[in-house]
Amino acid sequence: MAVTRDIVVSKDGPSGAGGPSSAGGTPPVVEVRGITKRFGSVLALRGADLALYPGEILGLVGDNGAGKSTLVNIISGALAPNGGEIFVGGEKVHIGSPLDARRYGIETVYQDLALAPDLSVWANVFLGRERIVRGPMRLFGWLDRRAMASEAREQLDRTRIRIDSVDALVGKLSGGQRQAVAVGRSAAWGSRVLLLDEPTAALGVEQQERVGELVRSIAAQGLPVLLISHNLPQVHELCSRVAVMFQGRVIATLKPSESGIDEIVSWITGAALVARKPE
């Protein structure tokens, strides 16, 4: 159980949908309060709260339809919420698009990775924020390929990702390597927080382990990670805290050091809610 737990966690027992968290110590890097989202007549989120602290790996779990993806999509700017507030570094922000989210330092690794298989590793790392040469050729958007290749190399090395050549086409990489590129790319750009949506769903056991190590090393460098996953053993092993969603709310935040997988499951299914609700 060599999990990094040397992280300041300022609050949260299984206390249910709690209020804003500022209870002492480090302020959250990203916090959402009372987020609601409606799809037609379906209320996907009914006031979800979540706070992410520096250097932590926060697991976000819940049954299908509990609202995990919706919440993540709202934080990453892919969806607009109907209500609620988002705070980045303590300031209230409006995230209207994925580009907005990025501007606030929120990087997302999507389930389907969002890589272009016909482009090289460095081109994928820099897509959308290409380095352009100085001088007159700048006018034509002339790419500084050498700079991008060497920077991509450095970025991936920093996250301990082993890719033989950053000139290789992403389509020629293995599933695990692609995952590593996607995570490494976002980690390199994410200045504040990294959102991982089911990063290991398509991977073999060994590669899941490797991605786990990667996530751990990213968090160890101080970048908090929000990990959305169905893989409870992995969540339990990796995360310092686990937020459980149920019917559009975060109903509990547990510490794996105190709660077993069984307890997490009982919150996911709502059983714990029934058992613990005397009111």
């Binding site: 969002a114 272009a116 482009l119 897509l127 002339w142 790419l143």
Partner: peptide, 27 residues
């Protein structure tokens, strides 16, 4: 040269390779 060496060219490939990825990358 435009297709092979410029930002416009790179994004042209990206769009054809994975349109959603290009969009998410801000293209």
């Amino acid at each position: 040269l435009v297709l092979g060496r410029t930002r416009f060219g790179l994004r042209t490939y990206a769009i054809g390779s994975n349109r959603l990825a290009a969009r998410r990358a801000g293209v």
